[in-house]
Design a binder for these strands. Structure first.
Lengths: 347, 347
DNA sequence: CATGCACTTGGGAACGATCCCACGGATTGG
DNA sequence: CCAATCCGTGGGATCGTTCCCAAGTGCATG
């Protein structure tokens, strides 16, 4: 930009440097550095002097200088495809952010939020991350055909995903036990006496959708109920998709008495369609959603839904990542966390 | 931490430096730097050579080194009180993040997400920000008694708020025209023939709540309707608060035929209470909310609500901040953006 | 009493950019 | 034709840390 005129107006308080702290404390720079970084090899006397000097001067280390020599940045990126910002509207996302952020803050790390809009930006991001501007990466809403994770893997950038791209995921990740959640939901419906249970899936290219469908099939089979293809319709996690799928199901099997939707939004579409067809929920048809999202509590009737332990997922993601950063290659695990049925009025 | 054992496992690809680019291009370091920073004083020949070298080596500047000498960080913090993460669940927040993030990314800035949990962390944040680790700060959900903005002001850290703390806000900020939004809502109700219009406010310590109440009063008065104190109940932006306020209003003025709530969540509480009292919405009582939040679309009946131009607010916040960073003290403006009524079934 | 070891300590040498000064060559004007 | 100006250029100094080596100190040991 321009190269003058930033003098007026700005107070421009120069921050004290480590050398100034050293001078004030009457020790060398090395000693101050050791105190700051918690090295044990400092005499109590020196340490006290340094700590006093730091307090008096209000010294705060310059991260850029530190980063330059340590080659660490003490920051991690949270990468979110912008297309998925509907996620923002979900407790899912805010929960992950909150808990991951807390965990990272406790470790003295900062969180860089990166929204990726299009492919061009994707390229920019890739070069950005490959330049090691962050110590690690958290990714949410990864698609199965997403190549960034593999790129990060090649570049040996510690990475943890929320959810996996497929059942052959190679990267560290944390996910909820989706199939078990679906099983619980179906079993709940069976216990209530439902016998013709349909399901509206998510896009089957996504692992979550697939896993929830698997759970649905499992639960039915292990209860001796044959899986009927006609009771399975594919949705896309949207409300409109839910309505369309529900319409189709009602055409194929008008006698169905329960629907398990792979997401709450889908379920809310299904409820609308059921009502439009003159059916009452849950009296005629019981409905269960997934995610325990904000709409679950607000639609009529309040939706029974499968909840993921979101806070724990965020925390776990952060701590897996910190682990991976601290001991490269040693960690890289997958963690599966249990789900839970939240019973409300729709089933 | 430990000082050995990071050799095995990590590929540790060393990134090329500016000096290497210079060597390869057969020019001096200064020239490379000039090319990267877009200085006009470079011959076409040199520029081409440098650009080729950069491409061949895959050079990406080291931010820490740059930051060390320029004293810029090219990053801004988005500060969010953790208590307000309910905000996350709102299009409001995700919209602000999206648009601000896009605007910042275009300017080559990165976005640091900072969730502030408690006072202890608040202190940490203050010293953090005072150490100039970011070039500027965006704040959402500032409370009227929030002291961080003043601190930032003192430290001469460029700051832009979403919404103001009071009508005497000294810092740069962007806000929706809340009172005008309320006026539009009330006028809509009057046009529909409503005559006894109640309102459920937010906490009147907050400027948004106050402004929306002002708009309510204005609109009535300018239509020749006297403002009746008994038709005003204070809520707290929660659903439960909305229910309680509605209960009170029904007791005081059972004949009311419309309610303007200062938030959609409040409105949804009001709707529940109205229904519990045997009234139908909108037939017996019309309801209008504020924010056009996600619940507005999902409650029954879908809620007429006042929408803020969220994307534009985020963009504007970012560009105000960039302005302020570029020319300290020159900018610091307030921008008020228009609101709009989204008519659905509740009114 | 000399030697060895453990523990502290100070300060030089990076890290990788930008800034800025000084220099050479081309252009212009008197 | 010389001086003044302008433009493009190279590279030294600098930013504020950490790393690491050498040196000093104190204590136990042979």
């Amino acid at each position: 930009m321009s190269h003058d005129e930033q003098k007026p107006g700005s107070a421009d308080v120069r921050r004290p440097t480590l050398a100034e702290v050293a001078a004030r404390a009457g020790v060398g720079r090395g000693t101050v550095s050791r105190v700051i970084n918690g090295s044990p090899n400092v005499s109590d006397h020196s340490r006290a002097a340094v700590e006093r000097a730091i307090a008096e001067l209000g010294y705060v280390p310059n991260l850029a200088a530190r980063s330059l020599v340590t080659r660490r940045t003490d920051s991690v990126a949270l990468v979110v495809p912008d297309a998925e910002t509907r996620l923002f509207s979900e407790p899912y996302f805010s929960g992950i952010i909150r808990s991951a952020s807390a965990e990272l803050a406790d470790a003295g790390m900062q969180l860089l939020l990166v929204l990726v809009r299009d492919d061009e930006e994707y390229t920019r991001l890739a070069s950005y991350l490959s330049a090691r501007r962050v110590d690690g990466v958290l990714m949410v809403a990864v698609h199965c055909d997403d190549t960034l994770p593999d790129l990060l893997d090649e570049l040996a950038v510690p990475t943890v995903l929320a959810g996996r791209r497929s059942h052959r995921e190679t990267l560290g990740h944390v996910r909820a036990d989706n199939s078990s959640g679906a099983r619980i939901a179906i079993r709940h419906l069976l216990d209530r006496g439902c016998r013709t249970i349909a399901t509206i899936t998510g896009p089957l290219g996504m692992d979550v959708a697939r896993a929830r469908l698997d759970g649905y099939c499992d639960a039915l089979e292990s209860s001796g109920v044959a899986v009927d293809e006609a009771l399975i319709a594919q949705g896309d996690f949207t409300e409109e998709g839910g309505r369309a799928a529900m319409r189709e199901l009602l055409q194929r099997r008008p006698e169905l008495d329960a629907v398990f939707a792979a997401s709450d939004v889908t379920a809310s579409g299904a409820v609308l369609e059921l009502r439009a067809s003159g059916r009452r929920v849950p009296h005629d048809v019981a409905v269960i959603g997934f995610d325990d999202s904000i709409v679950a509590r607000h639609i009529d009737p309040p939706l029974t839904s499968v909840r993921q332990p979101i806070e724990e997922m965020g925390r776990t993601m952060a701590s897996l990542l910190l682990d991976e950063i601290a001991h490269r290659g040693k960690g890289r695990r997958e963690v599966v966390l249990p789900t839970q049925l939240v019973v409300r009025e729709s089933a």
